[in-house]
Amino acid sequence: SADYSSLTVVQLKDLLTKRNLSVGGLKNELVQRLIKDDEESKGE
């Protein structure tokens, strides 16, 4: 998976916004949300 932890919070929020995901929470939560979304989209 992508190394989201190396991105800035601003970059993470931009990715979340593009996916229509919540941008609330700490950086670690944003990273986990993106990883979870990646895993769910692979399952389709």
Rank of each mutant, 00 (worst) to 15 (best):
S1L: 14
S1I: 13
S1T: 14
A2E: 13
A2D: 12
A2K: 14
D3H: 08
D3L: 07
D3V: 06
Y4N: 02
Y4K: 02
Y4T: 02
Y4V: 02
S5H: 15
S6P: 04
S6D: 14
S6H: 13
S6K: 14
L7Y: 04
L7W: 04
L7M: 15
L7P: 01
T8K: 04
T8A: 06
T8Q: 06
T8E: 07
V10F: 05
V10Y: 04
V10M: 12
Q11V: 07
Q11M: 08
Q11L: 06
L12D: 01
L12Y: 00
L12V: 03
L12N: 00
K13W: 03
K13F: 01
K13D: 03
D14S: 07
D14P: 00
L16P: 01
L16T: 02
L16E: 01
L16C: 13
L16K: 00
T17Q: 14
T17G: 10
T17P: 01
K18W: 03
K18G: 08
R19C: 04
R19V: 02
R19D: 03
N20M: 07
L21Y: 00
L21I: 05
L21S: 01
L21H: 03
S22A: 11
S22N: 10
G24I: 15
G24H: 15
G24P: 03
G25Q: 02
G25D: 03
L26S: 15
L26I: 10
K27T: 06
K27P: 08
N28E: 15
N28H: 15
E29G: 02
E29Q: 08
E29R: 03
L30M: 11
L30D: 01
V31A: 05
V31H: 02
Q32M: 09
Q32I: 09
Q32A: 14
Q32D: 12
R33M: 04
R33Y: 01
L34G: 01
L34D: 01
L34R: 00
L34T: 02
L34K: 01
I35H: 07
I35P: 01
I35E: 08
I35K: 09
K36H: 10
K36D: 14
K36Y: 08
K36V: 08
D37G: 06
D37L: 05
D38F: 05
D38V: 05
D38R: 03
D38C: 05
D38K: 03
E39H: 11
E39I: 12
E39K: 10
E40I: 11
E40R: 14
S41L: 11
S41E: 10
S41A: 11
K42L: 12
K42E: 10
K42A: 12
K42M: 12
G43N: 13
G43P: 11
